[in-house]
Computed example of a mutant assay.
Amino acid sequence: MSKYLINRLLIAIPTLIAISIVIFAILALAPGNPMGEFAMNPSITSEVRENIRKSLGLDQPIHIRYVKWFTAFITGDMGYSFTSRSPVIGLILQRIPTTLWVVGSAYLVGVLLAIPLGVISALKRNTIVDTVLTTLVFFGFSLPTFFTGLLFIIIFSIQLKWFPFIYNSTLQVKDLQSLIAQVKQSG
């Protein structure tokens, strides 16, 4: 078992590094300018803009910028958000509980659906029920999540009005009513 985990880890690390290189390159080569917010501000002169570019390292070649970014990322420095004017790690830590709640709820719903459907499919092997269930599950896995998510929001939130379509991250569970509201918005 430990040999298997070590092999998987040795495959995962280079894969994650390769993915980070590709994403970094795509973002660096994409049209647009990280200095766009400063470019629209008429009170910032071109000289100040150039000094900001140099201070952020945007005047260096892409491979040097990647090494600097990767080193900072490994040490826990994820940078600074100009939009919210705060460190990125703080924004991530702020959103982790809500993300884990939503993802955990989705996995729970998935397991509660998958186990009975799998048992039914196994019991009715090579019948029309098995074929229909297998086709539906295959179809569900094949659709992109941005499409199914939007489709479910339209059906269950807008048409049927079973769930809210906007997540309220400030909702605190204090009684049965607020617990039901939290479960509804996580569905």
Rank of each mutant, 00 (worst) to 15 (best):
M78T: 03
V137H: 00
S20N: 02
E47K: 11
A122D: 01
A106L: 13
T83C: 03
M35K: 04
T99R: 00
K3I: 11
K174A: 14
Y167T: 02
I115W: 07
Y4E: 12
P61M: 00
L112A: 14
F156P: 03
T45I: 04
S121A: 14
L112W: 08
R8Q: 03
S169T: 07
W162F: 10
R95M: 07
I166M: 12
I96N: 01
T145L: 12
L151H: 03
L58G: 04
D59I: 01
S2V: 14
I158S: 04
F147E: 00
F152I: 08
Q177M: 13
V102W: 01
S43K: 13
F73I: 02
S2I: 15
P34V: 01
R53D: 08
F152T: 11
F163N: 09
R49L: 15
F73H: 03
L179W: 11
N41K: 09
Q177R: 13
F70V: 09
Y4W: 13
S169A: 13
L16F: 12
F138W: 06
P144G: 02
V67D: 09
P61D: 07
G79T: 03
L160T: 04
I166H: 13
L16A: 02
T135A: 14
F147N: 00
Y4C: 01
Q185D: 08
A25M: 13
A39L: 15
P42G: 00
T170V: 09
S178V: 04
F139Y: 09
G118C: 05
G149D: 07
L143T: 05
R65C: 00
L151F: 13
L160C: 05
P164R: 09
G149M: 03
V173M: 09
W69A: 04
T134M: 13
L171D: 03
A18N: 05
V109I: 15
T145A: 14
I13N: 07
S121W: 09
F70W: 12
A18I: 10
G32N: 01
L100I: 09
R8A: 05
K161Y: 08
I13E: 09
T99M: 08
R53C: 05
K174T: 15
L123H: 12
W162E: 03
I74W: 03
A72Y: 06
I96Y: 02
V119P: 01
K54W: 02
F70Q: 08
M35W: 06
V132L: 12
Q172P: 01
I64N: 06
I166L: 12
T71K: 12
L123E: 04
I154D: 11
T83S: 10
D175I: 13
K184Q: 11
K161A: 14
I180W: 11
A122T: 03
T98Q: 10
R95N: 11
